[in-house]
Design a binder for these strands. Sequence first.
DNA 1: TAAAGATACTTGATATAAGCAAGTAAATTT
DNA 2: AAATTTACTTGCTTATATCAAGTATCTTTA
Lengths: 143, 143
Amino acid sequence: MKEIEIIHSIRKFNRNYVRSIGLLEKSFLNTGYSLTESHILYIVKEQGKTTATEINKVLNLDEGYLSRIIKKLISNSILTKEKSKDDKRVFKISLTEKGIKEQQKLDDLSSDSVAGIISHLSLPEQEELAHSFNKIMGLLYGE
Amino acid sequence: MKEIEIIHSIRKFNRNYVRSIGLLEKSFLNTGYSLTESHILYIVKEQGKTTATEINKVLNLDEGYLSRIIKKLISNSILTKEKSKDDKRVFKISLTEKGIKEQQKLDDLSSDSVAGIISHLSLPEQEELAHSFNKIMGLLYGE
DNA sequence: TAAAGATACTTGATATAAGCAAGTAAATTT
DNA sequence: AAATTTACTTGCTTATATCAAGTATCTTTA
């Protein structure tokens, strides 16, 4: 297989997948959260009590933008922040009770959405699919 | 493999890949074209003389948005339009000479960008990667 | 075949997502 | 203790996308 074919395969995938992700994004429209906000909540769940800087090590958003999103999520009682004791520049961020529930809802929505996409496949096909995704993850991101 | 694991694999991939595509998008910043514009030019190249409606069968953009993008690309001499003879509501759209060149540039940029992402892999690994992408394409989009 | 409905495209107004730059305050380095 | 860096915030702007209403033409149907 030539390099050009390899690149074409990936680019073809990208063109299609970008649109899939666009659709996924639209499925978030009714929830009141953007995909980025949903990512942030996911990360806060994963990391537990964390900071804007830690979140941004994953997402690499504009700092100001992230700051505003966090501010909004706090004002909607999804997140809380408290001043860190060891470093007074830092705010420790965590999910509120409501935030935990909301994050769970978004998590379920996302899983349902993926379930829908693969629902037309047989179980062996779904397994092949997962295997392929895992393979790519391993190769590209070393996991 | 359980369904929940399959879904988790896909969601994990999505979280990572969304960011990759975000980076890809940024690589278009200097070009003066957005990823969407670049897609449009790609489709016009593929389809040859085409129409807004045909383009939108692929991209599903808001019609008004698409109309404006086309307008802009025409005013920048990338696209031309001519009124269709069989249907006076329709405009046939095609790439200008300049448009062909610009599209080619974007195409090259996109290929280079992908080449960069896979450059740390050996050829067999790159082949495995392409194979996995193709597999997913086949399963999800039937190609 | 004339009216009703559908299709192709456009335009004005607006929303959403994201980024830049300048700034404050606290920590770290020199 | 001054200079630099880090963590976060805020004002302003741009990029991307959507909604709704409208024009012109084509197609259906009564």
